[in-house]
Design a protein around this nucleic acid. Structure first.
Lengths: 196, 196
DNA sequence: CATATACCATACCGATTAGTATGATATACT
DNA sequence: AGTATATCATACTAATCGGTATGGTATATG
């Protein structure tokens, strides 16, 4: 019943992701979006709700499509390898030549007006979820003797995520893959070994 | 000749710094500023030019007043100590209870609309200046035998700045001093020693 | 004291913001 | 075929954006 939609919502969502990723949440206007997506304002609102809803859906898509490597990385045999795969994989996302540089989660709303505070908090919450996954991985590593028992998994998860955040800011500023690889090279040198 | 200004420009600039630091460049409106500074729009424009001029002046004030510790830190006797003082001092800035958390240089414009691209580039440029100062310090350290000759000062400067950027994002998200201290604790463990 | 001048207050500017009401158009179901 | 309905295109809303014109007020100089 009714007329058919003349655009592909999934394709449109991919386009929205590109725009949001380059400009952040507040830096992107509805006009920016409709222009890039090739649809009209009412079509956008009918298909995706409001700007905030649309951003959350692009966030979901981003995690599903670009951050999915993390789940696999965490399953590496050793904790060290898991972390290294995490950081190297993240570099690929940050510098993907087909997407604007940087991370949607970081570019999204580091600082913003009061109006988009909910989005900012959503991004912070999602970041914490990911950091906790890494911490849990390190905890099982410790239980399995793959991570020193006198080291705090939370400390190391925090460290690794901080490196990631730093790289994300750098990438958004135009850092090259090679530059970021060297950051990881140095960062991994502090990785603790299990005394035996 | 003429009427006296009824507000203290320096005090007003300090207030502007607080607002910009919390909200970033684009997230801050002129109304936000005039309201916080307790002055009218024409007064603001008469005293500080336009929004971009005002932001650059708050940036100068920020570097003069909050980032000045870096210059001193770099003069520490050893490279390692210089870097550690740099990072610890930065934590103090990021979590100063009298100011909004985070760094003006990072919060300022990670992502933004096309309109404020000049500000974004200004911030990136200033960041590079600071990283180069650190790199130079490490280079003289290497020349003086205080830093391994087979290590690249640029790599380590990049690493240290990345840690700083990561902490800045964390701080803006509400990270505590203690949390950030632990990041530095871990980060410093990779610091190279000179073979002797 | 008179006058020139700098500041303040108010009200405004056009442009843009997110979001929507309206009417035309095209499709699916009865 | 007829009708219900969902989409599309256009035009619109009130609010806010950065920035300014205007006119009153206070002060410094002659």
């Amino acid at each position: 019943m009714g007329r058919h939609r003349e655009f592909d919502p999934d394709e449109a969502l991919h386009t929205a992701l590109q725009v949001f990723r380059r400009r952040g949440y507040e830096g992107t206007s509805i006009s920016d979006l409709t222009e890039a997506m090739g649809i009209t304002r009412p079509s956008l609102y009918a298909a995706f709700g409001n700007k905030e809803d649309l951003f959350r859906r692009t966030l979901d898509l981003y995690e599903r499509q670009h951050l999915c490597f993390a789940h696999v990385a965490l399953q590496a045999p050793t904790a060290r390898e898991a972390v290294e795969r995490l950081l190297r994989g993240y570099i690929d996302v940050l510098t993907d030549p087909l997407s604007p540089p940087g991370c949607l989660g970081v570019n999204g709303a580091v600082a913003c007006s009061e109006a988009s505070e909910p989005i900012r908090e959503e991004l912070i919450a999602r970041r914490i979820v990911n950091e906790n996954k890494l911490r849990d991985r390190l905890e099982t590593a410790r239980a399995g003797g793959d991570f020193p028992s006198d080291e705090d998994p939370a400390d190391w998860a925090r460290y690794v995520v901080s490196i990631g955040l730093g790289m994300a800011v750098r990438a958004a500023s135009g850092a090259s893959r090679e530059e970021l690889q060297r950051v990881v090279d140095v960062a991994m040198r502090s990785w603790p070994t299990v005394p035996r």
